[in-house]
Simulated assay, not measured.
Amino acid sequence: MSSVLQKLITPLAGSPAEPPRNKVTVVGVGQVGMACAISILLRQEGESRLNLVQRNVNVFKAIVPQIVKYSPDCTIIVVSNPVDVLTYVTWKLSGLPKHRVIGSGTNLDSARFRYLMAERLGIHASSFNGWVLGEHGDTSVPVWSGANVAGVNLQSLNPDIGTEGDEEQWTATHKAVVER
């Protein structure tokens, strides 16, 4: 039985490119640079997004009122985990209208999903279309019925894609999205 990749394209190159290495470079040691570096060093591996709630809520209680005090006409974009919970907390703490407090939601999950799916298919990420819905992280849901390459629906090539019966185990790709 042919795989989705075999049905979709014939690889043109011999071996896949070397996977990216996890490396972060912070240029600048001002307040923003140092804050980024410290944040990177303090992320606890294996800690769930929900375990971050109380710690981050305490930080938000200190900074959100100050943001609104000095920038009353601002729009706040929340990217801290767990993003959905903290977006709600930010909205409540800020007193701003709901359209001025925005959470990144599953935008990051969708971007990771597109990248990892494309990598597994051996194509550029911009050639793969797919989305992840729901809450950011562990409870997010990939939309397998909408996953496609150049309009070719992957579910039409593998009706079991994303299910327990999928012999190619495409759900591992979504699992990798959540673990990153």
Rank of each mutant, 00 (worst) to 15 (best):
Q6I: 00
Q6D: 12
I9R: 15
L12W: 05
A13S: 11
N22M: 09
N22W: 10
V24R: 06
T25A: 11
T25C: 05
V26F: 08
V26A: 07
V26P: 11
V26D: 07
G28I: 05
Q31Y: 07
G33M: 04
G33H: 09
G33I: 04
M34K: 12
C36S: 06
C36M: 13
C36V: 15
A37Q: 11
L41P: 00
L41F: 02
L41W: 10
L42H: 11
L42W: 01
Q44N: 03
E45D: 08
L50N: 14
V53H: 10
V53F: 10
V53D: 01
Q54T: 13
N56F: 05
V57I: 13
A62K: 15
V64H: 02
P65G: 05
K69N: 11
C74S: 13
C74H: 09
T75P: 08
I76D: 05
I77C: 10
Y88I: 03
T90Y: 06
K92T: 09
K92E: 12
L93S: 03
S94F: 02
G95C: 10
H99A: 04
I102T: 04
S104C: 08
G105M: 02
T106E: 05
L108K: 13
L108D: 04
D109V: 09
D109A: 15
D109K: 04
R114Q: 15
Y115V: 14
L116G: 02
M117G: 02
E119W: 06
R120C: 05
G122C: 12
I123P: 03
H124L: 06
S126G: 07
S126H: 14
G130E: 01
V132D: 00
V132R: 00
G134N: 12
G134R: 00
E135K: 13
H136R: 10
G137R: 03
D138H: 02
V143P: 01
S145M: 01
G146F: 04
G146L: 11
A147D: 01
V149L: 01
G151K: 11
G151V: 06
N153S: 09
Q155L: 03
Q155W: 03
P159E: 12
P159I: 07
T163Q: 09
E164S: 14
G165A: 14
E167S: 14
T171I: 06
H174M: 07
A176S: 15
V177C: 15
V178T: 13
